[in-house]
Amino acid sequence: MAEKPVRVLVGKVGLDGHDRGAKVVAQALRDAGMEVIYTGLRQTPEQIVETALQEDVQVIGLSILSGAHMQLLPPVLEMLHEQESRDIIVIVGGIIPKDDIVYLKENGVAEVFSPGSSTEEIVDFIKQKVGENQ
């Protein structure tokens, strides 16, 4: 029997307009057989969580390159916590300084993919994590 495809929300949080990475990753995930919901630009943390719950995704991939990650990512993590949706895997891509990566990973981000990461790494990571959750 065919496995049910993994559902992933790929989102741009904040006002940052750099969407090359998010779109390339979205396309790569789709090519890897996943179902991708791409939000487009300028999503608030609230919108991200709302869409994730509505779409019943297993993974949220957030892209942010504006430097606002420390203000915009924790609210996403907190809301997921409150909604008792801690099993949704949150991954992040963008320009995130090392200290911030440490903080984010301690607070619920599963992985941060920095510039130079390959889409293959991201696909493999998601498959592995989703597998562990099941």
Partner: peptide, 11 residues
């Protein structure tokens, strides 16, 4: 503005 959260003076 609420949408400016986290972005002021960043880029």
């Amino acid at each position: 503005h609420p949408l400016a959260r986290g972005e002021v003076g960043k880029v």
